[in-house]
Nucleic acid binder design. Structure first.
Lengths: 330, 330
DNA sequence: TTGAAAGCGCTAACAT
DNA sequence: ATGTTAGCGCTTTCAA
């Protein structure tokens, strides 16, 4: 900036004014400065700028998800990024792998860089470490799951109702031996979906047979193996409810052609309607989740200090056929 | 930091030393400082730190992709993030939508924040604006596509050979009317894949019929419509080569049950093996692309100033059946 | 082992 | 309309 000032024959303050588009600079002076800027290829150091402008923030937000490679979070991330871009913000991203330690590391790195806000898919771990940054002005919004004991805006979907609807569908089609295959039970969404599964059974006066419930599935292969085990039971399931897309894929790996087990899954899959029979799912909208979270965050950043809100978006039950098997009803 | 110093009864300089883990502080002094840090919940402002430490960089890199919501780039992003996290770096992400203007905006926002490096899926636009930041020390690596006229490390896959292999497979199974359905031709990967398509035909002495070639497809719906048009031809195609995952999905939307057209696509799909018949694809490895790009970038950041390298990763041809239809060979 | 002074690049607040 | 001074939070350098 000093160099530009020297070349343009003005003071650094004038360069600052021109570069920041402030009024009150004579047109020909501004032109001289702009020419010097171009000649030197000067670009302002925004970190230094934000250091001085204490009240204006850094125009940077952090997005912390479970796994950025998961298409669900990728869609969410894109949606957050679009909202941020629209407002002139940039986005730092990090994946936690659902490990509280990595979550802490990532968030610490973000707050050390003075992010104005944080959109967080929280792990099971405590979040006391957020208190201090929040007091210092960092706004926080949780998405996909709430954080235990953290009073912040939270955007989720009706996991329990969605799962209940799906399992009810299986019951409606004559299934009574319905398996639940889920990810780690300590993940809030998974516990909710399991609760929905149990609720649907309870609605019909059926007990939940522990032998048909598997938690902690984290891969296609592991799910495939779990399904194979269930088939060895004396009284095997005739239907399976899968609690996320990865687990649905694992189950599909293990059902025959044509399938010998009915399947309904949480989360839609790109080719779901193309399977034989087409896949019935509970579908959620990651773009809406991300967009809503971003809008909440930015309204907080812009000064909204009302009580924390909790937004629950609706899932959609998409009936395509896979829940009616083995072709006993139609 | 001043507050911590006051509480601990030392100078800010001593706090700085303790917080940065520098040697030469008496153990009991350090203990007093650490206690004050905890009591006040102090966290260092890394932006201010990096402002002063000119030579150490900001430990921040930027990742600029076409579309973060695309599973391919999401996997790449996760891979880059893992490498960055391992080294104590954080990652700014941005999507360009393949619009040169948005690419410029995103990159400008990143360089203004003094990123140490940039991993870039370049748009078709010029990249002269990178010259200045590069002179100022920002390292740049291109991934998925090269940037015209930008001499930097570049990681791509053998798009042309992969496409040629796929189309050859269709020819081997008796198809001679093979359509090409692709995204915008000005995207380097798409032009390469089209060239591979043409090369495979030429290998057999066949001309490329312009009536069977469609560029610029950007959605499932648009692709579906394009396929419908091709079917209206007097001499319609018996096979289709699709140049990316989205286009493959669009074509699958439009083929019958069972399919009346053979399909081979670039990029694998999660349920591809589960279709009837299973989907034959040219598969590339986004995790390897991202990891390789990140490793190149970090070795540059760590001082490697050898001539720019070009790394070409191999695609894998995954034959599953959909290219053999309509069941005339086996 | 500790601290004081100066300055990273920028801008708020006050001159002129 | 432009410039001067001081200071954002930290660290380099040098002195004690």
């Amino acid at each position: 900036m000093k160099d530009v000032a020297r070349v343009a024959g003005v003071s650094p303050m004038t360069v600052s004014r021109v570069v920041s588009g402030e009024a009150g600079v004579a047109p020909d002076t501004a032109a001289r400065v702009e020419q010097a800027v171009r000649r030197l290829g000067y670009q302002r150091n925004d970190n230094a700028r934000h250091l001085r402008q204490k009240d204006l923030g850094t125009s940077t937000i952090g997005l912390v998800v479970d796994d950025l490679a998961n298409p669900f979070y990728a869609l969410m991330a894109r949606s957050v990024e679009d909202e941020a871009h629209r407002r002139g913000y940039v986005v730092l991203v990090g994946s936690t792998n659902d490990e509280p330690r990595r979550e802490r590391e990532v968030i610490a790195a973000f707050t050390a860089r003075q992010v104005d806000g944080l959109i967080l898919v929280p792990t099971i771990g405590g979040h006391g470490f957020l208190k201090q940054p929040m007091r210092a002005g960092t706004r926080v919004v949780c998405v996909d799951r709430p954080a235990r004991g953290l009073a912040v805006d939270t955007v989720t979907v009706d996991n329990r109702a969605g799962a209940r609807r799906a399992v009810t569908h299986l019951l409606d089609h004559g299934h009574t031996r319905i398996a639940y295959l889920g990810d780690r039970y300590d993940i809030w969404t998974q516990a909710e979906r399991h609760a929905g599964y149990v609720a649907a059974l309870t609605d019909r006066g059926l007990p939940s047979d522990p032998a048909l419930v598997r938690h902690g599935l984290r891969s296609r292969e592991g799910t495939h193996a779990a399904l194979a085990e269930l088939r060895e039971l004396a009284d095997p399931p005739t239907a399976v409810f899968t609690s996320n897309d990865l687990i649905t894929l694992g189950v599909l790996d293990g059902v025959g052609h044509p399938p010998d087990v009915a399947v309904v899954g949480f989360d839609d899959l790109p080719l779901g309607e193309r399977l034989d029979p087409p896949l019935t799912v509970v579908s959620q909208d990651p773009v809406a989740l991300g967009g809503t979270a971003a809008n909440l965050l930015f309204s907080r950043i812009e000064g909204d200090s009302s009580a924390p809100r909790s937004v629950i978006l609706l899932t959609r039950f998409v009936e395509r056929g896979s829940g009616r098997l083995p072709g006993r009803n139609l």
